[in-house]
Simulated scan of single mutants.
Amino acid sequence: MLITTKGIVFSALRYGEADLIVKCFTQKSGLKTYLLRGVLKSRKGKLKASLFQPLSQLEIVANHKDKGTLEYMKEAKLTKPYQSLHTHVIKSTVVMFLSEVLRNAVKEEEANPALYDYVEASLEWFDSHEKTVNFHLLFLLKLTRYLGFYPDDSQQDAPVFNLIDGTFQDVETNLDCINDENVVLLQRLLGTEFDDLSSLKLNQTARSGFLLMLLKYFEIHLQGFHKPKSLAVLNEIFT
């Protein structure tokens, strides 16, 4: 079925000498994987390799067979040309990291408009603001709401956070409970909006520690999720 939909690029991997295998999270059909033949050598086609940078926002015309196989993309064009995400060295590193997280975390091959709208709007905010050093932390925390394991904040003042249950509690009940500065930061970030991030002052140690806690939380709740390979690069850029 020929369909026109918005899509966000999660990854683009070279296949052979001239082809790309592209994973896109589409607004109308969820996660789709496309085989783009000859795109790395073609100069005249409607598909250009430069369109498929990490987290680019596109309008896609594609033929979806919806059989779990590689799909055919007929046309694509940028819908939201970024001003900084692919050119600013720190932002581009964060984009690389987040694209890997999303590729590992989002598996659904069906429409999820709320998740799509969240990722789209968050990226546009990130692109248009300067004080964004902690953006990835809040992005990942908010992402858990759309993936089904946002922390239960009904007992938010309790000193312990249970990574397995996603709840705050008074005492540790298993080895995956935390009771340290990460709990305090988590409590602060719950309910925080991106526009409030400029008031959040963290050193690299605190930022890195909280990110590791978040990634462990993802690993516990998402089957097959693993720490992104780009984490080392991200940590280096923030050193």
Rank of each mutant, 00 (worst) to 15 (best):
Tyr150Glu: 05
Gly166Val: 09
Lys216Met: 04
Leu2Val: 14
Pro159Glu: 09
Leu102Trp: 02
Ile8Phe: 02
Gln57Trp: 03
Asp165Met: 07
Asp170Ala: 15
Thr173Ala: 07
Thr79Ala: 02
Gln53Tyr: 07
Lys65Met: 05
Gln83Glu: 04
Phe149Ala: 13
Lys65Tyr: 03
Lys227Gln: 14
Lys227Thr: 15
Tyr146Gly: 11
Pro54Tyr: 07
Gln83Asn: 03
Asp117Cys: 08
Ile60Glu: 01
Ile90Gln: 13
Leu190His: 02
Lys131Val: 13
Thr239Cys: 06
His221Lys: 05
Tyr118Phe: 15
Leu138Ile: 09
Phe149Ser: 13
His64Val: 15
Leu141Gly: 06
Ser199Gln: 12
Lys74Trp: 05
Leu231His: 10
Ile220Tyr: 04
Arg103Asp: 15
Arg14Gly: 00
Ala105Leu: 12
Asn162Trp: 04
Gln27Ile: 08
Lys23Gly: 05
Ser56Gly: 08
Glu75Met: 05
Leu185Val: 12
Gln83Ser: 06
Val184Phe: 06
Lys131Ser: 11
Asn162Gln: 10
Phe238Ser: 05
His221Gln: 06
Leu190Phe: 01
Trp125Val: 05
Glu110Cys: 04
Leu137Ala: 10
Ile178Leu: 02
Leu214Val: 07
Asp66Arg: 08
Leu143Trp: 03
Ile60Met: 07
Leu2Lys: 08
Ser50Asn: 12
Lys77His: 11
Asp66Met: 06
Lys91Met: 06
Leu35Trp: 10
Met1Trp: 01
Leu185Cys: 05
Gln83Ala: 07
Glu193Met: 00
Pro228Asp: 11
Ser29Lys: 08
Pro151Ser: 03
Leu13Trp: 04
Tyr15Asp: 01
Lys6Gln: 13
Ile8Arg: 00
Ala206His: 04
Asp180Ala: 09
Lys77Cys: 13
Lys142Ser: 02
Glu130Cys: 00
Arg188Ile: 02
Tyr82Pro: 01
Thr173Leu: 13
Phe97Ala: 05
Lys107Asn: 11
Leu102Pro: 01
Leu102Asn: 05
Leu222Pro: 06
Val101Leu: 08
Phe218Gln: 05
Ser29Glu: 14
Leu137Glu: 07
Lys107Gly: 01
Lys6Met: 07
Gly209Arg: 06
Met96Cys: 11
Val184Gly: 07
Glu120Cys: 08
Val133Glu: 14
Gln83Met: 08
Phe161His: 09
Ile21Arg: 14
Val133Arg: 15
Glu181Arg: 14
Met73Tyr: 08
Asn112Trp: 02
Gly38Glu: 13
Pro228Glu: 09
Ser208Ala: 10
His129Ala: 10
Asp195Thr: 04
Leu85Met: 09
Phe218Leu: 05
Arg207His: 12
Val171Ala: 03
Tyr217Thr: 09
Thr4Ile: 15
Phe225Asp: 06
His226Ala: 06
Tyr72Pro: 00
Glu219Ile: 04
Val233Thr: 14
Leu13Cys: 01
Ile21His: 14
Asn104Phe: 11
Phe97Ser: 08
Val233Gly: 02
Arg207Asn: 10
Thr144Ala: 07
Arg37Glu: 12
Trp125Leu: 06
Leu215Thr: 03
Leu35Arg: 13
Phe52Trp: 08
Val171Asp: 07
His64Tyr: 11
Gly191Met: 09
Ile90Phe: 14
Ser199Ile: 12
Glu100Trp: 10
Ile60Trp: 01
Lys91Trp: 03
Ser230Gly: 09
Lys23Asn: 15
Phe161Glu: 10
Ser84Asn: 11
Asp196Gln: 15
Phe126Ala: 10
Ser92Asp: 02
Gln187Gly: 04
Lys80Ile: 13
Leu200Asn: 06
Leu140Met: 15
His88Ile: 03
